[in-house]
């Protein structure tokens, strides 16, 4: 690491001014749990670190105009511990609660999880299934983009952390009949990246799926949405176990996991995904039955 300065802005305008002053050689740091290692191993470069983790206007989360607004300073711990989030977005709560370890979750942020652009990043997979959007600020102005459109290849975010700030993640509030679920398979419960993970968000009425979003990882260069499985979900009766299995089978077919000596061969992971998607659909079915 050849860091020449460490800067702590107090608000977003000051932060943007600092990024501009460093002309692409400065870089935002939130929890640092990804960036520190990337800098050490030369996978990322920066001459100045600009720390956004204590900035007042990037702290906290709240429901605003039918959206949950999670500002960029929010940590996995804060989000996974919030009762309201657990109630309305159990998928997000559970995903954040499974990142790394307590020490990591105490400092690591959801925004960092998205910008780090790993295909199985827990929170990012849940956010993609939930249809979340990212609010991004740069000297050119403010823009909103779907989280799933922020990927430019394996580990490549389309957010340029040396010029732009992801200020907040915006997650739609579920309507009546909407449910969301998250699951992962890993050899241990802590400090272990998933062999596979997936999140689902379903619109249902009277026990039938109207439409659904599925996101899964790591089966592509980004959190992946299996189009055919999503199409197959439409009109499925949540009681119909054979139909739920079939959706799982299609999702497994669409997935393209890599062979990994640590995290299982491709075929095994595909099998696991088939089972994981089916199990999550059954969880969702149980949730809707409870609410009815």
């Amino acid at each position: 690491m050849n860091i020449q300065d460490y800067l702590v802005p107090h608000h977003v305008d000051e932060c943007l001014a600092m990024l501009n002053a460093w002309g692409g050689r400065g870089r935002l740091v939130a929890g640092g749990t990804d960036l520190v290692a990337s800098l050490e191993y030369g996978k990322a470069q920066a001459e100045a670190l600009i720390d956004i983790s204590a900035m007042e206007d990037l702290m906290g989360f709240e429901i605003q105009d039918h959206e949950l607004v999670v500002r960029a300073g929010s940590t996995h711990r804060q989000v996974s511990a919030a009762p309201r989030i657990r109630q309305l977005w159990p998928a997000l709560s559970k995903a954040c609660g499974s990142v790394g370890s307590p020490q990591i979750r105490n400092v690591a942020t959801l925004a960092g999880n998205v910008v780090n652009a790993q295909p199985a990043a827990d929170a990012a997979v849940a956010l993609v299934a939930l249809g979340a959007r990212a609010e991004i600020l740069s000297s050119g102005g403010r823009r909103l983009e779907a989280v799933e459109n922020l990927y430019g290849g394996l580990g490549q975010s389309r957010i340029d952390s040396s010029r732009e700030i992801l200020v907040a993640l915006r997650v739609p509030v579920p309507d009546a009949g909407e449910v969301n679920v998250y699951g992962r398979v890993s050899p241990r419960n802590s400090l272990c990246l998933p062999i596979v993970n997936a999140a689902l968000s379903l619109k249902t009425a009277g026990g039938t799926v109207l439409s659904g979003r599925i996101a899964m990882g790591p089966v592509s260069d980004r959190p992946f949405r299996p189009e055919r499985a999503e199409a197959a979900l439409q009109g499925v009766a949540l009681k119909d176990r054979a139909a739920l299995s079939e959706v799982g089978r299609i999702a497994g077919e669409e997935a393209n996991p890599r062979d990994s000596c640590l995290r299982g061969c491709s075929d095994y992971r595909r099998q696991l995904l088939t089972v994981l998607i089916r199990t999550l659909l059954e969880d969702a079915a149980a949730q809707t039955a409870e609410e009815a």
Partner: peptide
């Protein structure tokens, strides 16, 4: 692991300026 304002964090991943 050390405690930062009472909460456990990892000193090996934490820029000291934090």
């Amino acid at each position: 692991t050390v405690l930062l304002d009472g909460q456990p964090v990892l000193a090996c991943l934490l820029p000291a300026m934090k």
